[in-house]
Design a protein around this nucleic acid. Sequence first.
RNA 1: GACACAGUGGCUCAGCUGGAUAGAGCAACGGUCUUCUAAACCGUAGGUCGUGAGUUCAAGUCUCACCUGUGUCACCA
Length: 563
Amino acid sequence: MEFKQQVISALQPVLGDNVDVATLTKLIEVPKNSEMGDYAFPTFILAKSLHQAPQQIATDLVAKIDQAPFEKVVATGPYINFFLNKAAFSQVTLQEVLTQKQTYGDQDLGQGKSVPIDMSSPNIAKPISMGHLRSTVIGNSIAKILTKTNYQPVKINHLGDWGTQFGKLIVAYKKWGSEAEVKADPITNLLRYYVKFHKEDVAHPELDEEAREWFKKLEDGDQEATALWQWFRSESLKEFQKIYDMLGVEFDSFNGEAFYNDKMDEVVNLLAEKHLLVKSQGAEIVDLSKYNLNPALIRKSDGATLYMTRDLAAAIYRKRTYHFAKSLYVVGNEQSEHFKQLKAILKDMGYAWADDIIHIPFGLITENGKKLSTRQGRVILLEKVLNDAIDLAKQQIEAKNPTLANKDQVAKEVGVGAVIFHDLKNDRMDNFDFNLEEVVRFEGETGPYVQYTNARAQSILRKSGVSVPDTAEVGLDDPEAWEILKLLNDYPNVVQRALAAYEPSVIAKYSLHLAKSFNKYYAHTRILVDDGQLTAKLRLVKAVSTVLENALGLLGVASPEEM
RNA sequence: GACACAGUGGCUCAGCUGGAUAGAGCAACGGUCUUCUAAACCGUAGGUCGUGAGUUCAAGUCUCACCUGUGUCACCA
């Protein structure tokens, strides 16, 4: 960042009043090809006011610029290209990374403000699928990015532990289930009952009526219904916890839908007080036509509340409890209309903080182009995917590094890392069709590639047998090292971009770039030879490893030291 | 039908706030392990950036229209 300032300072005096600092800062860019320089200033905008060709302007300006702080400044066509002083840049960058270690890239953007994140949110009695993986790992990564920029994330697992599906589940359990089955394998069997219910109710619509009755009982606190609900919930949570442990994700709250049951009346009353509630076809709705949105259902004709009612209660509860700066919802893109409605209603209720409600949508995972559906039993079980990935990682280790210590631990870190990284490396809005081979790939642009790169760096540091000094003179002048140094210097900026867009993929892509540039360097430069630059090279290696581990950490991916 | 998201080489995707010959990875073909982990590196081949207008000195990037795909559209979440 401060190096860009050098460029600005050099240009300002020669530009005079022609360009103000703000536009100047905006115009300065990084050339695509680093052979053209480290920063560039395009002169087109001056052409009109100076009545000269941009090429001519560039040449004239270069002659006037104080070149002292730079390696060189040259005019290339209409561009002024700045080449930074590599020694100074390397010195500053390496020292920053090595002294700040894992705090490198930390920034106080949030001043400790609280940011609840609604994430993961699986449904009780249903398995965690690939769809939940997205919400879980995106939310988890955003939480880590928030912490790094001094916000205080609150990870909320808004469990789907209420709703008419529990009526269905109770009916199905009573008709076709057994206690022994549920105890043996809760999720599998509960899901089986649920799927069977949906098959049967096509021919026997009276089942739906029964389910509605049982859910009503549950809402009214009926003992049998409540006991079953609680049992299903606790068995399910135990199963979920296994997966969260594998993923290394922890939550600050498991307040799900049921938690808001006693907070619904207040919402309905508030809406009524503000005359926002309208009767329509027996139901109570909020009209949102002025926002060009469909009406939002608050209460069904039978008096039961809905998803929207609950989310309103949750939003208000979170504002009161956490006094949030922003309230995030990592929920699939197919629900974007819902969140628009939610914000619109909160705004109509007079809450200025409605604007701080932020939906972070993500694309759909399909299988053979079709949407996954628990109801139809078309589901990709996350646990199975993770286990498959771990098995494949284990095979890979046996083949490539059979003498490795704690193989099982590393296999877990690599396998799970592959799955998480695969999910985070692309723009979160991209849809993707599930393909196991693709997800657990270890070569090319993958998590294991980044992990492997770091393991190589760690290996060198181990074998060097020396402790690398945080401060020392550096004199790395080959272009491959220079690429790495520029990337290292860019990291804080990358973190900032990831935060601004709520995009873990920005971090993931950066880690791939850094890994790639290091592998290139590694392939062409022998590090462990004393050529007078040994210390400098080791410092570079250590800095790369530090930042790779940091970046992987922000994604929730482990960094094994050997693999 | 309305709204939302997407449309870049065979496949999967990059391309930050519009800027200099559009970049990777898979897959294909060829090369590199007696030397720091070949989960790597190097090279070859492959693209009218959905289509058509417009704004601009400059458009993959902004605007509009259209085409295609996916999703959503009141008593599920």
